[in-house]
Design a binder for these strands. Sequence first.
DNA 1: AATAATGTTCGTAGTTTTGCGAACAACGAA
DNA 2: TTCGTTGTTCGCAAAACTACGAACATTATT
Lengths: 98, 98
Amino acid sequence: MTIDIITDEQRKMARYAKAISHPIRVYILSLLGKQSCCYSGDLSEDLPIAKSTLSQHLKELKDAGLIQGETKAPKIKYCVNKENWAEAQELFKGFLKI
Amino acid sequence: MTIDIITDEQRKMARYAKAISHPIRVYILSLLGKQSCCYSGDLSEDLPIAKSTLSQHLKELKDAGLIQGETKAPKIKYCVNKENWAEAQELFKGFLKI
DNA sequence: AATAATGTTCGTAGTTTTGCGAACAACGAA
DNA sequence: TTCGTTGTTCGCAAAACTACGAACATTATT
């Protein structure tokens, strides 16, 4: 009940887990796992949500560091952020003892 | 934009991820990974949160199916729910393999 | 039976998440 | 420049999350 015994690693774990804690975001990341990149417009066609909502989910993933967007005007190409994804992999691997 | 293309697997992934999307819950699960079981009271001593708050986090993990409680009156022994934990492992493994 | 130990539930409060449509910004093409 | 395409941001609302203390339940012990 004194000091904070939760480690930075555990905080990071929680952060990444939070980023993937929504079905839409799981879907997006799964897709990026298959094809490594995608356009927001393609997602918008497939997913039953408003564009603005999709935009927010992408922002969530971006803020968590799991994806990155590259402007290919007028579109934006989203890719996995490999560095952070690798970190997340390691964290989850350790956590799940996979 | 028509049918829901999100799979049950992806929904489950999101559900499990949500359960571990809080530092306190990551801490609890990490501990259970090390020693497989623990008492709520021990957690309460270590964590800087109110008992009632801890109780809620444990309930979250229980509802998600990741842990289960066994009454050893007047204490409660919490353990990993092995079956569901294995399922979560598989889901994350598939998800992260990417 | 009375007390102590252990947790849960209730009521409350503040914050965050999720979602939508409308309005706005950026940029290529006609 | 004007228009169409593509996304983001804004304003709003509903729901969920996080947290606390007080009150309550349960059970072992005295």
